[in-house]
């Protein structure tokens, strides 16, 4: 994959949830430069420019990562840990999108340095609204340090 500018990296193994997220982003014109990967391995390959993403540069990081927690093999929390424990990538905002409001997931995510935890609302309108809010915040309002 070329080193194009990416706004949102969505890590989501459920294709239907990925599509709903994309539809919600589209509804609010936030879907530009959007990349979807299905596994934790692909996510870290993307962030750290490995494998099929080796032509990318690590500085050209996504503006925000939407991360599902329950992924096969490498879990969402593993991905979060890897991103947040590397000096080069620790400033990338990672928002967890989860179907569960399990306290232990929230606490663990917080300890690992997540930037937000959003329980996917059951209602699509509310879901679209939540996606709009977090997309708008991280893509438009939020300012990151230059380095």
């Amino acid at each position: 994959m070329s080193d194009q500018k990416i706004n949102i990296l969505l890590v989501e193994d459920n294709p239907y949830h990925a599509e709903l997220t994309l539809k919600a982003l589209n509804m609010h014109h936030l879907a530009e430069n959007f990349v979807w990967v299905k596994t934790g391995e692909e996510a870290t390959d993307f962030i750290f420019c490995r494998g099929e993403f080796s032509s990318r540069t690590i500085e050209n990081a996504p503006k925000v990562v939407f991360l599902d927690l329950k992924l096969p093999k490498k879990s969402g929390l593993d991905v979060l840990k890897e991103i947040k424990s590397d000096e080069r990538t620790k400033n990338i905002p990672v928002v967890i999108l989860s179907t569960s409001r399990e306290e232990k997931d929230i606490v663990e995510g917080k300890n690992l340095g997540m930037n937000g935890y959003v329980v996917k609302p059951d209602d699509f309108e509310k879901f679209a609204e939540a996606i709009r809010n977090i997309g708008y915040y991280w893509l438009v309002l939020n300012q990151l340090p230059k380095n």
Partner: peptide
């Protein structure tokens, strides 16, 4: 209950989401 909250809600979210999207 962890599994219920994840695994059962995930497909339901999709059913509900697409149905609503369809209606909207």
């Amino acid at each position: 209950s962890y599994s219920v909250s994840h695994d059962l809600r995930a497909p339901l979210l999709a059913v509900n989401g697409f149905t609503q999207f369809l209606a909207m």
